[in-house]
């Protein structure tokens, strides 16, 4: 009987039984970033994430008229809120995974 068990899915063309982890779409051996909140916010403000700790997040900004997202974060996060700064529209992802 196998020592451990779980689930894994390989990329097309790779043998799921033998391939290395970078060729897997997912494996229950490694945690996935689970999304808690996804949204957009225009301007300065806060988004309460509802978690009791400081989670991992990603934030990007959009300014101007072109359909482009910059890599300016214009945000910080604490154990209560995602704190958004500046006058630009932000797109954010807040994950369940604890940052610190």
């Amino acid at each position: 009987m196998a020592d451990d068990y779980g689930i894994k899915i390989s990329k097309e063309g790779y043998d799921v039984k033998t391939t290395s982890v970078e060729n897997l779409i997912m494996t229950s051996v490694y945690n996935l970033l689970k999304t808690k909140l996804v949204g957009t916010y225009d301007g300065v403000g806060t988004v309460a994430h509802g978690l009791s700790y400081t989670p991992i997040y990603i934030s990007r900004t959009k300014g101007g008229t072109l359909e482009r997202m910059s890599f300016n974060s214009n945000a910080s996060i604490d154990s209560t809120n995602l704190n958004l700064e500046g006058l630009l529209i932000k797109k954010y992802y807040i994950f369940y995974q604890q940052a610190i």
């Binding site: 300014g63 101007g64 072109l66 482009r68 890599f71």
Partner: peptide, 8 residues
């Protein structure tokens, strides 16, 4: 206009 021009 606030558009990112170098990195985006």
């Amino acid at each position: 206009d606030g558009n990112p021009i170098n990195t985006y």
